[in-house]
Design a protein around this nucleic acid. Structure first.
Lengths: 241, 241
DNA sequence: TAGTGGTCTAGACCACAAC
DNA sequence: TTGTGGTCTAGACCACTAG
């Protein structure tokens, strides 16, 4: 069951995306929205706060909420999005090839990244992402088997995240994300169409569940010329010192 | 004047950072905090929500708020942070060299990026960032002169953002951020100690003020081996479709 | 002055976790 | 059963914007 605030968020976001509310125009005032949706002010404000966080609107004291031009950043790879979710937004054919699907004993590096012991079982999943016929991305995932007991090649070809959320009902909550550039390994060179690029751009993720337990470490290794990361950032409590 | 919620956020964040509240332990419950700070539940919840957004805590229904291990991601370059703010967190000497400070008529590219006409004045600021004796980052900034009428070499050497916020009282609010890899230009090669790297990692930013007006376009061009971007991301309304 | 969003309060009911 | 966070309500006062 969706909350009232979430339903209002969805309705307003849809109206911004389909052009009912145009960029640089104003949203109805909070008191207008209260009448329109028949809820209290707190509920309206919760929905508006979510829209603000996601870059849909800017709220101005004394004036109102104005609609931002969301088309200007049309590929938000921000936050936690699976490759399937991203590829749906892209046109052009994308294909996933599963190179490896094994249960391994973690080496020292994986033990430290995934916070497991040497005798714990860990899934290692290696997948190549092919975009318009070129092998562009090499995804290497490690899952703590304590949380993901079972995996198949079919699941990995489709979408692991969809399986985890819809079948296992794991609730993915947050991640620590790091982007660096490193020399391509032999594995990169073998699996990707790197051409002359001696480097790969790596997005490293530590992914946590709702109860703050670490369940996945993943490296997404990209051919540099095709790499793009887009983000919407608000100046927040942290950088305000 | 700080709000009550912001003051409580600051106090709790400080206590998490100095170890009074340890990672994986629980914060006092909302009702405890109500008594402790003598405020209403809404105010406490606003502070806890900010802590959650910034990766300090994870809130669990029926249990409480547990403290996350913030040391695990000790260099959050997330959001909107100036080079001076970042370099303060780093040890090791950092130095800024101002290569260029001019008012220019924007070319087509800058006109489109900064949303100005061909006759509008635009500041062009080019700065090299030297870290431990090596020229690692080339920052190229364009400011709409409508918002920034006056700039000096001293301001650019110190911190433009500090000047904008403290002297001009401009309120920087949000940015659209993009990270890509491109071939190094002649300007990159001349200004940076690139060694054999034929590429640079570029962080492109469109920066907006509180009233949603675009006032700055900036490119931060990094030597690949020294580039690092760290982020804390929550799975949010957007990626939940 | 009227309208807007920002902050804060007090109270209610719910779902979930732990005992 | 008790305590926790999640949602929602109704009302108040404030600061800022605009006419």
């Amino acid at each position: 069951m969706k909350t009232k605030a979430q339903a209002i968020y969805d309705a307003l976001a849809a109206n911004i995306q389909n052009g009912t509310y145009k960029p640089n125009s104003k949203l109805p005032s909070e008191y207008d929205l209260i009448e329109q949706y028949g809820v209290s002010r707190g509920t309206i404000r919760q929905a508006l706060e979510m829209l603000s966080q996601d870059g849909y609107i800017q709220r101005l004291k004394g004036k109102g909420s104005i609609v931002l031009d969301i088309r200007k950043y049309n590929f938000p790879v921000t936050g936690l999005v699976s490759f399937k979710e991203v590829s749906k937004m892209m046109h052009g054919d994308v294909r996933t090839i599963v190179n490896e699907l094994t249960v391994v004993q973690p080496d020292d590096f994986i033990q430290s990244q995934l916070d497991v012991g040497p005798t714990d079982d860990v899934w290692r999943v290696v997948r190549t992402r092919e975009i318009q016929g070129e092998k562009i991305i090499l995804d290497i995932d490690y899952f703590d088997r304590k949380y993901v007991p079972f995996l198949t090649k079919e699941i990995c070809t489709d979408s692991i995240y969809e399986y985890l959320e819809n079948e296992l009902h794991l609730s993915i909550s947050f991640a620590k994300k790091e982007i660096v550039v490193e020399s391509a390994t032999d594995e990169d060179k073998a699996a990707l169409d790197l051409g002359d690029f001696p480097y790969v751009v790596i997005v490293k993720n530590h992914v946590y569940l709702e109860d703050a337990s670490l369940f996945e470490y993943t490296e997404s290794r990209h051919r540099p010329d095709k790499f793009q990361f887009v983000d919407f950032a608000r100046r927040n409590h942290l950088n305000k010192k």
